[in-house]
Write a protein that binds this DNA or RNA. Structure first.
Length: 201
DNA sequence: GAGTTACA
DNA sequence: ATGT
């Protein structure tokens, strides 16, 4: 399958999930959040992140004063729930049937939430891509360079779009500038869910 | 809309 | 420095 758009090596699959498939994934993610409740992580430098997050899979991404890392358990001490089949199916289609992701990070963006420019580099093997799924309200995704600074390009991601960052694009800085709250009817209370699938080790 | 700096 |  080919992307509808490629920006600096970042593949964008617009409308990859139809409305029915989006609804299935959201239902499954609700199940994840019932077992592993959303929380707002503290950054190592003392400011809380504005996204609320949880994870599914062998590892969950976590942050506190000690730094960014993957953890085997939710901060409440329980193992993370399994990654839903509806989510793994996306990975199988676009990435691999040989190796499944170790982590499905669930980020919820409310009206004011953003995420600053950063690299995904807490994983052991950058040979595997990072796959991200957008659900709910539109979000402005910004793609930069392998080092901080320089020119960037932005793209509006809509519900059902899937982004794959692999190869040359795996370590590009990226972030989410803003969401357009209330632009989708997928989530009754509005906001945006972003799922990020990664091979961790 | 996009880029740079400062921050403690 | 995944924030302001």
């Amino acid at each position: 399958m080919q992307p509808t758009q490629t920006i600096r090596g970042v593949d964008v699959y617009e409308g990859f999930l139809d409305r029915e498939a989006q609804g299935q994934v959201v239902d499954d993610i609700r199940g994840v959040a019932e077992i592993a409740p959303l929380f707002s992580p503290m950054t190592p430098y003392g400011k809380p992140m504005r996204v609320k997050m949880t994870s599914a899979g062998k590892y969950g991404w976590y942050s506190d004063r000690k730094g960014y890392r993957y953890e085997r358990q939710h901060p409440d001490g329980q193992d993370w729930p399994a990654i839903p089949e509806s989510v793994l199916a996306i990975w199988r289609t676009l990435v691999s049937t040989e190796r499944m992701p170790d982590c499905c990070l669930v980020n919820y963006y409310g009206e004011e939430a953003r995420m600053g420019m950063h690299q995904d580099r807490d994983e052991a093997d950058f040979g595997w891509p990072v796959l991200s799924v957008s659900l709910g309200d539109e979000g402005m995704f910004r793609i930069g360079n392998a080092t901080r600074g320089g020119k960037t390009q932005s793209v509006w991601l809509r519900s059902g779009d899937v982004v794959v960052m692999g190869g040359e694009a795996r370590l590009l800085y990226h972030g989410l500038d803003k969401i357009r709250f209330g632009t989708s009817t997928l989530l009754p209370k509005g906001g945006r869910i972003n799922l990020t699938l990664r091979v961790v080790d």
